[in-house]
Amino acid sequence: MGSVSQIRDRHPDSEKLTLNLGFVDLGRIDLLVQEGFYSNRSDFIRTAIRRQLDSHGGVVERSIERHSMELGLRDISRAELEQARDAGEVLHIKVVGLARISPDVTPELARATIGAITVLGTLQAPADIKKALADRIG
């Protein structure tokens, strides 16, 4: 049998943001929604953000390359950290997107193997791991 995850154990694939808009801008968005250009306010905002990111795509790609960053999802497993520890390596992790540290990683293993972790996006890790790495999270 394959593994089955309960819904409450699943991590969201997006992050909720809150922003303030002027009344006129909000009214203009509502007008576009009412006219059927967008299904709702969130659809408009997501579309606008994607267009801006696309227009700056080359800059983003060059910056990721220049800073030696990984783009997307980066899972950091206990096995990977144990392998680094056994090889005497210290990892410097840089991610644009989502970095997840496995729940079975101990704070001691994380401190022994992660020299620095920079995440432009979201870092998902158990609270004790975040606390152990607090001085290394940038």
Rank of each mutant, 00 (worst) to 15 (best):
I7T: 11
S102E: 08
D54S: 14
D9Q: 09
Q52V: 11
Q83H: 08
G88I: 10
F37P: 02
G57V: 13
R41Y: 08
L17A: 11
Q124I: 15
G27I: 01
G36V: 06
F37E: 09
D128I: 11
K16H: 12
M69V: 07
R66D: 14
P107C: 03
V105F: 03
S14K: 07
R41S: 06
L81G: 03
G115I: 10
S68E: 13
E35G: 06
V90E: 06
G58E: 15
V60S: 06
D25N: 10
S42E: 15
R111Y: 02
V59L: 15
Q34P: 09
G115A: 06
H56K: 15
T18R: 05
D25C: 05
I64S: 00
P103N: 05
G72T: 01
L73F: 14
I129N: 04
V60N: 03
E35F: 09
A87D: 11
D104P: 03
A134Q: 11
L123A: 06
D9K: 06
T18A: 01
R74N: 05
L91W: 04
I7C: 09
D30G: 03
R62P: 06
A116D: 08
Q34T: 13
D104C: 00
A127N: 14
R85E: 02
L133T: 04
I7V: 14
T122Q: 11
S77I: 03
D30P: 06
R50S: 09
G72E: 03
V4H: 11
I93L: 00
G36R: 01
L81R: 02
L26D: 13
S77A: 02
G138A: 15
S55F: 12
K16R: 12
I76L: 04
R41L: 05
H67I: 06
A99M: 03
H92T: 10
D75C: 13
D86T: 05
V4W: 07
V119W: 04
R136Q: 09
Y38M: 01
D75F: 14
V119K: 03
Q34S: 13
D43V: 07
N40Q: 12
D30F: 00
R46I: 02
I137M: 13
D135N: 13
M69Q: 08
V4S: 14
I64N: 04
R136K: 13
G27E: 08
H92G: 07
S42L: 00
D135L: 12
D86Y: 02
A112L: 10
